[in-house]
């Protein structure tokens, strides 16, 4: 007989890491018992500093995470990591390989790493990533880093879900026009240029700084017009360790600005709004699949022959969802 989720939550609140890892697995199913447990966990969470980390594939995200965690650990803070990799669009399976670059952390009791697959959700986040964050928060981790799947240019959900968003760029991946495009570069609270041991990294740092200076709102200001935060560009090298301390100090400063000013409240409200929409969307989607899957099969033939259109059909199907 499997242990009840409520019992697991009780163990979680006492700091039991085994309960944490089991709850993360259960969180992926949508049954009522689990949902109510997740609610209890959400209400108990709220202390940790949640850091989102994103960037194009190959920009050095996982290696940077392992350096960051190693360095944050020196002052005793406990760090959780949620590492997300893509699922195959064909089989639904995934190879989760971020751990390979974090082997230095495995034996540290103050570090918890969980790998996740995107499993059909877009935006660079796995569906249950944020519940995993709540679980790590409740069990007592001080900093939680979400490493997104290596995203392209438009997967920006991480910024809606984290307290501080790091966008990692690597030298040699594009010119300054890439930098002024919309999307991923706009969501950064802190820009990181990785691989700074490379000679062309200065160029990337300069391009980013120019891009930021072109923006009208160079600094985020409070209601009285006082500047609260200016998006910095920090160069790091996971090879030499250069810039890692600066990056952590910058992250802590960003956290403090949010904890002590109106920016923080606004961000927390935005995160709450995003999560509520997202959760509702997930529930709706799974309900839709559950109750309409067979009926979709009935109409696809007609739609393929253009006797029926997807707009009318989905409207009808939505009306028939059984709750």
């Amino acid at each position: 007989m499997p242990i009840s989720s409520a019992d697991l939550v009780a163990r979680l609140k006492k700091g039991d890491l085994r309960a944490a890892s089991r709850l993360m697995s259960r969180a992926e199913s949508n049954d009522d018992e689990t949902l109510s447990s997740l609610g209890a966990i959400y209400r108990a969470a709220g202390r940790a500093h949640i850091v989102g980390l994103t960037g194009v594939p190959g920009s050095g995200k996982s290696t940077l995470v392992s350096k960051l965690v190693e360095t944050i650990r020196k002052d005793g803070r406990r760090v959780g990591v949620i590492a997300i990799d893509p699922s195959s669009p064909f089989s639904g399976g995934a190879i989760l390989g971020d751990r390979i670059r974090m082997t230095n952390l495995v034996m540290d009791e103050g570090v918890f790493i969980r790998s996740m697959a995107t499993r059909g959700s877009t935006g660079g986040l796995a569906r249950s990533a944020l519940t995993a964050v709540d679980i790590l928060d409740t069990v007592g981790f001080d900093v939680i880093i979400i490493e997104t799947v290596g995203v392209g240019q438009d997967e920006v959900e991480i910024a809606k879900a984290s307290h501080s968003t790091l966008v990692v760029s690597a030298p040699g991946l594009g010119d300054d026009v890439q930098a002024i495009k919309a999307g991923i570069l706009e969501i950064a609270d802190i820009h990181v240029v990785s691989k700074c041991d490379r000679s062309d990294s200065n160029r990337t740092i300069t391009d980013l700084k120019i891009m930021l200076a072109m923006g009208v709102n160079i600094a985020i200001k409070d209601r009285g017009g006082k500047p609260l935060w200016q998006v910095p560009v920090v160069g790091t090298s996971s090879e030499t360790g250069e810039g890692i301390d600066t990056l952590i100090a910058t992250l802590d400063r960003h956290r403090d600005v949010h904890r002590t000013t109106e920016l923080g409240e606004e961000r927390l409200r935005n995160i709450a709004e995003y999560r509520t929409f997202k959760t509702a969307e997930d529930l709706l989607r799974s309900q839709f699949y559950k109750s309409t899957n067979k009926r979709i099969q009935d109409v696809v033939e007609q739609i393929a022959r253009r006797e029926l259109d997807p707009f009318t059909a989905s409207n009808d199907l939505l009306k028939k969802i059984a709750f």
């Binding site: 699922s87 195959s88 064909f90 089989s91 639904g92 399976g93 995934a94 190879i95 989760l96 390989g97 751990r99 390979i100 082997t103 790998s115 697959a117």
Partner: peptide
């Protein structure tokens, strides 16, 4: 993976 499983490899 091709059979639809999530696979974590340690190295």
């Amino acid at each position: 993976r091709d059979a639809g499983m999530d696979v974590i490899y340690t190295g």
